[in-house]
Computed example of a mutant assay.
Amino acid sequence: MIERGREIERTIYFSDAVIAIAITLLALELRLPQDLASGEIVRHLVGLLPRLYAFLISFWVIAAYWMAHHRIFNCIRAYDGGLLRINFLFLMWIVLMPFSSSLIGGYGDLQLPFVVYAVHLMLATFTLSWLGLHAARNPHLMEPGVDPRSFRRQYSHRMLAMIAVFALAIAASFFSTTVAEFTLILLFVARPGLLGRRASRGVT
């Protein structure tokens, strides 16, 4: 069943709310023990650096996902059951982000928590790209003037670019988790994947 009009706005507003809550929950990991002596504050602040790193990476990754989600729905005028299910799957990965982020914040020197985090991001990236590809394969869901082939090609390239960064980070984790964590910065330095240009009408 195809739904149009204001019903699509409910999906957008709900998604925005879920993403906003998830991105806010990331900050709950950033706290100091109570009743610290003045001489202990600096030591505990230094101890928070791994959690701060996890917060910064996760915050900006979720922000990138939100921007891409916004751009996808800017090109969609209707939805079907498949689109809604894929969108809920994507939101499930977003809701789990504070959990996986806490893994690398608390156990950043271990490989398994990092691999879980990187695989989590790969799944979220794949699902968000799947959302865009589902819409592109069903032109009746798209706004007039959107070229489905360009739209589909763009999100295929973006998915592959981001998954390549995550795969590289996982490979690096077999040698050093520190190197693996900093490999994720490539997401922002090289601007691949979801950090690329706007998914606008007819733009490749």
Rank of each mutant, 00 (worst) to 15 (best):
L32N: 01
F99C: 07
F59S: 00
L186Q: 01
L48P: 04
R158D: 12
R10L: 14
P144F: 12
F114E: 01
R152T: 07
W60G: 01
L194T: 05
A27E: 09
A199F: 13
A124D: 03
I163K: 10
L32I: 01
G132V: 02
L121E: 13
T127A: 04
A78E: 11
Y155E: 09
V165Y: 00
I12Q: 11
R4K: 14
V115I: 09
E29V: 03
Q154T: 15
I2C: 04
F14N: 13
A17P: 01
L184I: 00
P139C: 00
E7P: 07
A64I: 03
I19V: 15
D109N: 14
W60K: 04
V116S: 07
M97C: 11
W93K: 08
L36K: 01
A190E: 12
F73S: 06
P113Y: 08
Y155C: 07
T177V: 03
L36N: 05
F88Q: 11
R158F: 13
V146F: 06
W93E: 11
M97G: 08
D147C: 08
L141M: 04
D109M: 13
H44N: 15
A118G: 06
Y117P: 03
L30Y: 02
R201T: 10
W60F: 14
F90T: 05
G5H: 12
Y117G: 00
A54C: 04
M162K: 09
F166L: 05
G202M: 07
F175T: 15
L83K: 05
L103A: 05
A118Y: 03
T11M: 11
E3A: 12
L131N: 02
L123W: 09
A164P: 09
M159H: 11
A199H: 13
L84T: 13
G196N: 07
D35F: 12
S58F: 00
L195T: 14
V116F: 13
L128K: 04
I62W: 02
I170R: 01
N138F: 08
C75A: 13
H120K: 08
Q154G: 13
T11S: 09
S58G: 04
F88I: 13
L49D: 08
Y13V: 15
V119H: 06
F99N: 03
G47W: 00
R31H: 14
G196M: 06
F114S: 01
I94S: 02
V203K: 12
A171D: 11
A190D: 11
G82H: 09
E40L: 03
G106H: 15
F59C: 01
V116N: 07
L49A: 13
R51H: 06
I23K: 02
I21R: 09
T204Q: 14
I2H: 10
A169E: 01
I104N: 00
L48S: 05
E181A: 06
R197M: 10
R43N: 14
M67D: 10
Y155P: 05
L131H: 02
L89V: 10
A17Q: 04
A20L: 03
